[in-house]
Simulated scan of single mutants.
Amino acid sequence: MLRVATSQLYRQAGNAIGDRQTAVSKLQQQLTTGKRLLEPADDPVGSARLMTLNGEMGRYDQYQRNIDSATGRLNTEESALGDAGDVLQRARVLTIQANNDTLNAENRGHIAAEIRQLHAQLVSLGNAQDGSGEYLFGGFQSQTAPFAPDSANPQQIAYRGDGGQRLAQTGPTSTLAVGDPGNEVFQVDSADPTKGLFATLDRLATTLETAPATLHADLGTALQEIDSGLDNLNGIQAKVGVRLQALENQGYTNSDFSLHLQQTISEVGDLDYAEAITQLSRETLGLQVAQQSFMRVQNLSLFNYMN
């Protein structure tokens, strides 16, 4: 009986030490990580809620990445549209200058040469790329330059993109366009490259180079087309500005909600350091007591009882 009792005491003391060591180790790990829940078994309901909250936080992080990417892309588009407007403004000034009977063929030839340069600049702007190397004005065809010489008539610039408009998910229920197809921006008819701003500048240069009998009428037509192109660019640029403002506003909304989520995650999963330190002190003391008890049981033997 004495041997059995001693064995039981030995096991009980050993189990007590093991339980205390586990508790101390867990508290130390909690204090190191700052997390109250180290595994689902610690709090099944809290762990499930924490998983849901972290998933929601991950989605809002993705929304912010989408906003950052869209903002960069739209800023680049806005800059390209502004530069394209500057090109057309210069072409407009040159067209008005050229519509003067005091100019001779050489004078008009110089103006035509500058118009050709403006034409090349406008094509380059039509093939502008964002920070990741994707073409801004190709619609969904963002990996290929949208504007290139027409295969049937190399003098004309054809549109190789499509009419697609990419969208970015910026919030749980909000999406926003992050680009504009080039055929709309530069008024190019995909089926007829003789229409659009590139064709206008090309015809304008040719008119100045050849000085036809209809020179003044042709320059007047070119001026009307340039003004129409400027109005169109200004309208699209205004839409881009509205989108950029919407992105900024959505970013603020997302940030506020993310802060709320983070606070809730902290309430559910973060450790109360003061309480944990107090508990660690209690468990450490309990471990010391258990170890002392174990040592006393270990020193017991049948001979102690026989004496």
Rank of each mutant, 00 (worst) to 15 (best):
A5L: 15
T6A: 01
L9Y: 13
N15I: 14
A16E: 15
G18W: 03
G18C: 01
D19I: 08
S25H: 00
L27I: 03
Q28A: 03
Q30K: 13
L31A: 03
G34H: 00
R36P: 02
P40Y: 03
G46V: 08
A48N: 07
R49C: 08
R49M: 07
R49P: 04
L50K: 10
M51N: 12
T52F: 13
N54T: 15
G55M: 11
G55T: 08
G55A: 00
E56Q: 12
M57G: 03
G58S: 11
D61Y: 03
Y63N: 09
Q64Y: 03
T71W: 07
T71Q: 12
L74H: 10
N75K: 15
L81T: 06
L81M: 10
G82A: 14
G82W: 07
V87H: 02
L88K: 06
L88I: 05
R90L: 13
R90I: 13
A91R: 11
V93C: 03
L94M: 09
A98D: 01
N100E: 01
D101K: 05
N104R: 11
E106W: 07
N107T: 06
A113F: 04
R116F: 00
Q117T: 14
Q117L: 05
Q121C: 01
G126S: 04
N127W: 01
A128Q: 08
S132M: 02
S132Q: 13
L136H: 11
G138W: 09
G138A: 03
F140I: 12
S142K: 11
T144V: 10
A145H: 07
P146M: 10
D150K: 11
N153S: 09
P154K: 06
Q156F: 06
I157Q: 13
Y159C: 08
L167S: 14
A168S: 01
T170E: 08
T170A: 06
S174Q: 15
T175H: 06
L176I: 15
P181T: 07
G182L: 06
N183Y: 10
N183K: 09
D192I: 00
T194N: 14
G196T: 14
F198S: 14
R203C: 02
A205T: 07
T210E: 09
A211D: 12
A211Q: 14
A213D: 14
L215V: 07
L215E: 07
L215I: 04
H216W: 00
D218S: 12
A222K: 12
Q224D: 15
S228K: 13
D231S: 13
N232Q: 11
I236M: 00
Q237C: 03
A238W: 03
K239S: 12
G241P: 14
L244G: 06
A246L: 08
L247Q: 13
E248Y: 00
G251S: 10
Y252V: 14
N254T: 06
D256G: 12
L259F: 03
H260D: 10
I265C: 04
S266K: 04
S266R: 12
G269N: 12
D270Y: 01
Y273N: 05
A274T: 02
A276T: 02
I277S: 15
L280T: 05
L287R: 06
Q288M: 08
Q288C: 02
V289P: 05
A290E: 05
Q291I: 06
Q292E: 12
F303W: 04
M306E: 06
